[in-house]
Simulated assay, not measured.
Amino acid sequence: MKEMQKEILSYLEKIIEEEKRLARKGEIPDYIEEVDNNDHGAVTVSLTSIDGTTVRAGDYEGRFSLQSISKLFPLALALMDHGSEEVFKYTGKAPTGNVYHSLIQMEMQEREKPLNPMVNSGAIVMCGLMKGENADKKVDRILALARDLTGNQELTYNEKVYEAEDQDLNRSLFYYNRHNGYIKGEFEDVMPVYWKMTAIEVTIEELSNMAAVIANHGVCVHSGKQIITKDVVTTLKAFMITCGMYDESGSFALEVGIPAKSGVSGSIVAAIPGKLGIGVMGPDLNKYSNSIAGIRMLKKISDKWKLSIFSEDRSS
């Protein structure tokens, strides 16, 4: 096992050095660069297997906000609270060809509900749908889930990032969905939940721990605790592969073939069912708002060990 870990670490360090040279080819969103991870060269990766072993490489000590990766939390909680039949009365299940904060696709649909829970509008609806008396109670539930998934019981959100998340476009998505009947709650009971969850900060190892739980059918690889029910994990993985990489999801599924969810901090969480969880980080983003270095690292890892869920020759 130790020899295998050395081999994996050696390969991860190799691809980290390769990607560091390309790490400044994209852009960092202004508000992220001001208050969160602003180091263009902070490329890092962590792998956590379902036996609990972690191998990491790169700049792995820093913390960064989850951003859209956190959309998995209210979806999981809403599904466990209400069941899929009820949840999908409020959001669709289809990928989108538009940007993650778009209004236009809802306007073009007959029923005008969000296309899926991985775009901003759908995640905001999930924040309204999940159980909780008010925003504080809902945030507590999301933090509890995030802490169990990552293994860090002190995990919290970055106050400066939270304040920077308060943007007009997401406000308009809230009111548009409430106008159409997909959100029942008041603004102050929903939007702070969305903004705070996107500001939750993790390390790269905590991100791969989270991915490993999803890979392990909802069971924590360290404690053996069932954190998310198996049926909900199945739904999460389906959305990750079809919608998790914004409007780049189709090409990512074809080229990498791993269920994944990205965030505009440059982080990506990826889960190979029954095998391992991966966290990657590279702040510079491409035109789809996905990490340039992160996608390249995941492709190299997938190709190296034949991890695509669509491959007929997957490594054991």
Rank of each mutant, 00 (worst) to 15 (best):
A293Q: 10
K225E: 15
S121A: 15
V221Q: 02
G279M: 13
R63K: 15
I258Q: 08
G128L: 01
G224L: 06
M108T: 08
T48I: 11
D148I: 00
D140G: 09
L12N: 07
R141G: 09
S65T: 15
T229I: 01
S70G: 12
K138S: 10
D51H: 04
Y175P: 00
K225F: 09
I278K: 08
N177Y: 05
V55C: 07
K2M: 12
G52N: 04
G244H: 07
R296E: 15
H101V: 06
K131G: 02
T91H: 04
V161M: 14
K89Q: 15
D168N: 09
S49N: 11
K25I: 00
T96K: 03
I183Y: 00
V119D: 04
L155P: 03
G41P: 01
L115P: 00
F64V: 08
S49G: 14
V99A: 14
K287Y: 14
P259I: 11
E255V: 06
R63N: 12
V202E: 06
K93W: 14
M191V: 14
I227L: 13
E186T: 12
R141F: 06
V219T: 14
I258H: 09
E163Y: 10
S308V: 08
L79H: 00
N120T: 05
L169Q: 08
N290F: 01
M245G: 01
G250S: 11
R56E: 15
R314A: 02
G279W: 12
Y100S: 11
A238E: 14
L173A: 01
D168R: 01
E3H: 09
E27S: 07
V213D: 07
G257I: 12
I32N: 00
T242P: 02
P273L: 10
I15P: 05
L145P: 05
E188F: 03
V221F: 00
G185W: 10
R24G: 13
R171G: 14
S172F: 10
E17T: 12
A146R: 03
I200P: 05
Q105V: 04
H217P: 05
K138T: 13
V219I: 13
T234W: 09
L169I: 14
G224R: 11
L207F: 07
L72Q: 13
